[in-house]
Design a protein around this nucleic acid. Structure first.
Length: 149
DNA sequence: TTCCTGACTCTAT
DNA sequence: AATAGAGCCAGGA
């Protein structure tokens, strides 16, 4: 059952990456996927959070993993999490100082340019990516996988 | 066991 | 610029 072991490692990597997100900041599934070394599998990242145990005795749980700080690349809180209680998620983000804008359709949009958190300042961003009004959440392929400690 | 869906993203049209 | 389609892999029925 090596496959389950790999899946567990993936889950753990995702949870750790999410834990690294500072309060008042948000990131995207795709970015987390890159951190864990699987930039091609952002959906799996979402599954990890969905399977995130609520059991406090578990190594990772909703109390230790700020899953609510993880949103999609469009800067919008995943509408599929609504049945789970996206309003609670949005409210929690605002509590942390994140401005959540509600769209006409009810989509919860977060200003990624300001609240988007990245583990490392990628060269493209460092040379002057985000600065004034024009936002550009595009992240260049930084590569250089930093091993999970 | 197989098939489908899914907390997404990227690329092409 | 906007829309549509493909890709990825795991969990649930």
């Amino acid at each position: 059952m090596a496959r389950s072991d790999e899946a567990e490692a993936f889950f753990t990597a995702v949870y750790r990456a999410v834990q690294e997100i500072p309060e008042g900041k948000v990131t995207s599934y795709g970015h987390i996927a890159k951190l864990v070394g699987t930039p091609q599998r952002p959906r799996q990242v979402g599954l990890c959070l969905k399977h995130l145990p609520s059991d406090p005795t578990s190594r990772f749980n909703h109390d230790n993993v700020p899953w609510q700080r993880v949103i999609n690349a469009k800067g919008i809180i995943s509408p599929r999490s609504q049945p789970s209680g996206s309003l609670n998620q949005a409210a929690a983000l605002e509590e942390e100082g994140v401005t959540v804008t509600t769209g006409a359709l009810g989509e919860l949009m977060v200003d990624f340019a300001e609240f988007g958190w990245f583990p490392r300042v990628l060269p493209s961003e460092a040379e002057g990516g985000v600065s004034d009004g024009d936002d550009d959440e595009e992240v260049s392929e930084g590569d250089s996988e930093d091993g999970q400690q």
